[in-house]
Nucleic acid binder design. Sequence first.
DNA 1: TGCCTCGTTGCGTAA
DNA 2: ATTACGCAACGAGGC
Length: 486
Amino acid sequence: MQVGANRWRFLQQSLADLDLQLRKLNSRLYVVHGKPIEVFPQLFERWHVHLLTYETDIEPYAVTRDATVQKLAAAAGVKVDTHCSHTIYNPELIIARNMGKAPVTYQKFLSIVEKLKLPKALDVLPRLPDGMQPVKDANEVNDTKVYDCPTLEQLVKRPEELGDNKFPGGETEALRRMEASLDDEVWVAKFEKPNTAPNSLEPSTTVLSPYLKFGCLSARLLHRRLQDILARHPKHSKPPVSLVGQLMWREFYYTAAAADPNFDRMLGNAYSLQIPWQENSDHLEAWAHGRTGYPFIDAIMRQLRQEGWIHHLARHAVACFLTRGDLWISWEEGQRVFEQLLLDQDWALNAGNWMWLSASAFFHQYFRVYSPVAFGKKTDSTGAYIRKYVPELAKYPAGCIYEPWKATLSAQREYGCVLGVDYPHRIVDHDVVHKENIKRMSAAYKVNREVRTGKEEVDEYELKSQGNAKRKARAVATGRTAKRKR
DNA sequence: TGCCTCGTTGCGTAA
DNA sequence: ATTACGCAACGAGGC
């Protein structure tokens, strides 16, 4: 897993705040270093553990790890008590209610959860009971500093990559942020995600995603608070565009991801269309570092690298650009870059959204392509966002800041930024490539359709003639080459 | 089977 | 400002 400096900092701050809050409750945080399967058996013995309790997780790495820890606990006579609390609903329950399959449309998902009982959000205890400290035995180190939170210096190996600490980690900041957002009840009630700006200078949305991801904020608590507010405002927006709708998107992707351990890759992924993406390390590098020559795209990618958060629609614009829109590079590559840079990096949400944007799964209207020029203009016609994150273009007038190649050479000199010298020429011509790529998408969908409708026929056929090309193609398209199995 | 509607957030152009 | 249409046309789900 790639973890950039900004997310390491967020984790460190979250741990420090958690420790602080626990100390107010008559306890503290004990941070133990090492691999769970090696460390837990030692702790069971050293601390005379009777009960191990933790939150369940759907990510394959965590599922495997937790299964091993459970076995070790059983062997040590430790009772295990797990809770599904990271999401509002239990993904497994939704899958069970949908005849063993995760719903692949949001509306279908909603129709299922609307019939489910809403789990309670727990209240915070005023104080933990005494005796919640670990028992020390003769071998225990007296210096409890070994259990202290890691420091920033210990976690952040490349401090030069740290940006402004715009979104500090921790529950305290999470609750402060939530209250600040919920304070304007009319705004909450009217919220419609498509009408929020991806390129405002300050976030136009709540930026609670990093806090939900790290468990600083409970999705159930936020959901309950939203419902309380909506009850007072009968005329309110609704899923999928409302704030509750945003939480439901999170649930939607968690449910889909829980049903497929290959959710984060194309091959062997039951949801993903198989598309012949092409490798292009120069283009990938230019995209990842904000050097595509498209100011709107570059501004977004630079904001991501500096601050660790970009608006959801900004993610749409750059994800479409990397994949089906312009560069025709695999969504897995984009996923890797986001994984490193996003504070709110989440296995299920990152993969699910990349599949959505690349029209590989869940979303299929691939002829709807975001324009790297026009899209940003709708909410920032003057280009203030570009001037902030691509400062070399700061002197370009509104008329051509989204399309600097339209400025004459003498004008470029006048604005203090010559293309090819101070800022890159655009690496592709959107008007040309996006039309080619729509045709490529059409062809990929056609192959997928043929493979799908010819399935039974091929199944019989392949028994008799192993190794033919059609069989191979189908194996790829249906995920037969899966490497990761649960 | 086939047909229809709908789908979180497209763009460019026209009225 | 808002709406409609062509673009060339997807899959899921329901009947």
